[in-house]
Design a protein around this nucleic acid. Structure first.
Lengths: 211, 211
DNA sequence: TAACAAAATGAACAAACGTACATTCATTGT
DNA sequence: ACAATGAATGTACGTTTGTTCATTTTGTTA
């Protein structure tokens, strides 16, 4: 059995059903973290949310910790897929790619209460549980490189004598991150359009020729 | 007994010793959250770190949850004290007040591995444990108002025809927040001076006449 | 110094935890 | 149709959890 087929939908009813339950467990675990916090994401809570049996977690993930890791991996893949699609779009200008990343970052697909709560949950334990690290760093090296690349393109295109692409990229990344935090702490009052305007306001300040 | 003397250092050896143990428990609990994560911050862990007896937590804080809340309150008070001292300094210009807040925000007093891990730990559970909310929002309404005030002052002083104080303030706050996240996730690679330069780079872009 | 009051202790407890595993059920291949 | 295979179940188990409280220790007061 190769490494893909293990978790892919199989070709018969049995394998399809199994992978469906696996997916179900991932969703239930995510929901449990959101509803009850990391501490409250117990086997019993996941069981109640999923409606599946107690032993299912051990069957699919061996341990609860593996299930939690799979939740983090799932979230991480989902975000990477979203931003990289925009960041590497060949037909978009540098400015449009930056705009696109801002839009993705603030879209409900990415920025929603449940997912953000899960990001924060895993991040909070990254010091004590290093195995989470590879999944929870939404702004990892590849994201960083993509933003620096965009900033460099903008610097070349426009007239920014004092421009520094790395400083600008680091600032933008921090800005995006901070918006997530604001959303997490004040999701009821958070205004996506206002947040987008604030991001574009900074982009315009950094790159007045482009925005 | 008034509300202050309960937790203040008393005047005899007994009260002094008691408040010392209380402080000791707060530190040990904070350390436990940092070392073992929120989930691992158990009575046993706190006991081991503090060296005090098991029953001490219940004596001083009634429940473990109260102790954790007191840790959050302690952290919150410490940060508020730091930033408000700079933000409301009467002899500083608006630009210097902003610079000062950036400096405080990136200083080891505030931005250190332990404290940031604790911020993130409490924040991660704010959805499921609303009682944490009042302590974990470092960028609360009063902080927000202070930054908006500074931005308004800068707008009045300089020539920024398209300026928007609220947008600028929201962006700056998110920027500061994002730097904390970056530090939390990459404390080994984090460069405080670089982060400060990035913040000032944005400040200069937003308020070129001032920075 | 003796009597008192408060602080500190740690053993004992019930509840909740994650995991293992014998059992049951459904699907497959012949 | 019928073994055979593997998924699904849920009870049972040992551990760990937070809290209680009777006891001991320490400091205060008369």
């Amino acid at each position: 059995m190769d490494s893909r087929s293990q978790y892919q939908e199989g070709h018969n009813a049995r394998e399809i059903g199994k992978s469906k339950n696996r997916r179900h467990l991932l969703d239930a675990a995510a929901e449990a973290i959101f509803r009850h916090g990391f501490r409250g994401a117990t086997i019993a809570a996941i069981q109640e949310i999923s409606g599946l049996s107690r032993g299912m977690i051990n069957l699919h993930f061996k341990t609860k910790e593996n299930l939690l890791l799979a939740v983090a991996e799932d979230l991480s893949n989902n975000y990477a897929e979203h931003w990289s699609r925009v960041a590497h779009a060949p037909d978009l200008s540098a400015a449009d790619r930056l705009k696109g990343i801002i839009k993705v970052d603030l879209s409900p697909d990415i920025l929603n209460e449940r997912d953000v709560a899960i990001w924060f949950a895993f991040r909070s334990e990254v010091c004590s549980s290093p195995e989470y690290r590879r999944f929870i760093d939404s702004r990892d090296a590849s994201f960083h490189d993509a933003i620096v690349g965009i900033c460099q393109d903008l610097m070349v295109e426009g007239q920014y004598p004092d421009g520094d692409a790395v400083l600008a990229a680091d600032a933008l990344i921090a800005l995006f991150e901070g918006m997530w935090t604001d959303f997490h702490l004040h999701s009821k009052d958070f205004d996506r359009h206002h947040a987008e305007r604030a991001c574009l306001y900074v982009a315009k300040s950094l790159f007045p020729d482009h925005f």
